[in-house]
Design a binder for these strands. Structure first.
Length: 121
RNA sequence: CGGACCGGUCAGACAGUCGCUGGCGGCGUAGCCGCUAGAGGAAAGUCCGGGCUCCACAGGGCAGGGUGCCAGGUAACGCCUGGGGGCUACACUGGGAACGGUGUGGCUACGGCUAGUGCCACAGAGAAGAUACCGCCUGUUCCUUCCUCGUGUCGGAACCGGUAAGGGUGAAAAGGUGCGGUAAGAGCGCACCGCGCCGCUGGCAACAGCGGUGGCAGGGUAAACCCCACCCGGAGCAAGACCAAAUAGGGAUCCGUUGGCGUGGCCCGCGCUGGAUCCGGGUAGGUUGCUAGAGGUUUGUGGCGACGCAAACCCGAGAUGAAUGACUGUCCACGACAGAACCCGGCUUAUCGACCGGUCCACUUU
């Protein structure tokens, strides 16, 4: 098995219907004060990630970019374990001038938590 | 060397690992590999001005909006450059004073209240065709002091007037200073300063200078309505163009109505229903618009300057559920504000700092 850690367009949710499917059939939910992960099984060989980060939650473009990139990074590093899942990241709290290291830490823990939950099932 | 101001440049560096997007090349071509490029000075606010696209459009007017000293720059501007006026700070300086002159900065929303309308609290006697409260002064009458016994004189009251010097009120009270003048005063007269008008000179012009002339305008407010001059069609890349699945529906042609389904054991009958091909609209989705441009760099050249012209060279993001990142290590001045979304020119706002050039001031040394 090639342990590639690439993150391409196949690793993303691209269309509205794809997002809707995950929202309607989310089997696992993991969250904390700031973020929420929704996941459901897919028929693909690869896991797919979707991001929902609205201007309402994060006013500054820099903050939105920061969360997106860090979320993708954490997803990318765990993609071997996450295979067969469609995952959506939602922002719960208000984001303003966050500490980047803190964001990475929180997101990493959330993905681990999600893996633990799926592993039980 | 330090401080202030102005203008410009940069926006932690290096190495490794794992990734992302575009371009180019290669290959065994749904991909993989290699090379290469990959956020900003504000990418921001969306406050102006353009390009581009579609719609509308003979011409003119109204409404609405904008701009407002002059000249220039520009594709254009509410921007920029240069100039003028006004206000102001500091320094020097002229004058007895009012008030001026020079230099260096700063600010300036700077057309028009000699078209009209509106507003101007409070205070004050009076606030817009000015005004007499106190005061000052002439006169008349009365009271009063003095002795020289008067058409005198000291003090005072009332009244008729005069007055805009002084006091007082106010943001503002009919120019200011000085001299003369006068009963006291007053541009009443004169000189100077200020102001209006006329002329000449200089300047493209705003305007300035000089000379003459008038004793001298009648408050402020137009970021109040308004008047004058000039400018402005609307919507925006989710503009717009193209390709186009599935499902439903539309049109045309041909074929079928001897078919299929239901009822029924079957036939007749009855009820329901077409098939094939092509076309156009169009949803999801995709492609394009999409980055080579009012583009940079250097040199020359015109201009005080903004900027123009010419030549040579360069190509410096183009995503689209949305790339430009993460981690580790080392170093230092310990890294601010902040993330492209069609593209440019401005303005405004945010910002840890570093460097370069210029002007002014202060200080040290020779």
């Amino acid at each position: 098995m090639p342990t590639t850690q690439a993150f391409t367009r196949q690793h993303r949710l691209l269309t509205g219907p794809q997002y809707q499917t995950v929202f309607d059939h989310s089997k696992w939910k993991v969250g904390n004060a700031a973020f929420l992960l929704l996941a459901c099984p897919n028929q693909q060989a690869l896991p797919r990630l979707g991001l929902v980060i609205g201007r309402k939650r994060a006013k500054r473009a820099v903050d939105r970019g920061c969360v997106k990139r860090r979320a993708r990074e954490q997803f990318r590093l765990r993609q071997q374990q996450l295979a067969g899942l469609d995952i959506i990241l939602l922002v719960r709290g208000r984001i303003d001038h966050p500490d980047p290291a803190e964001v990475t830490d929180q997101l990493g823990k959330l993905f681990d938590k999600l893996l633990a939950k799926c592993g039980q099932a």
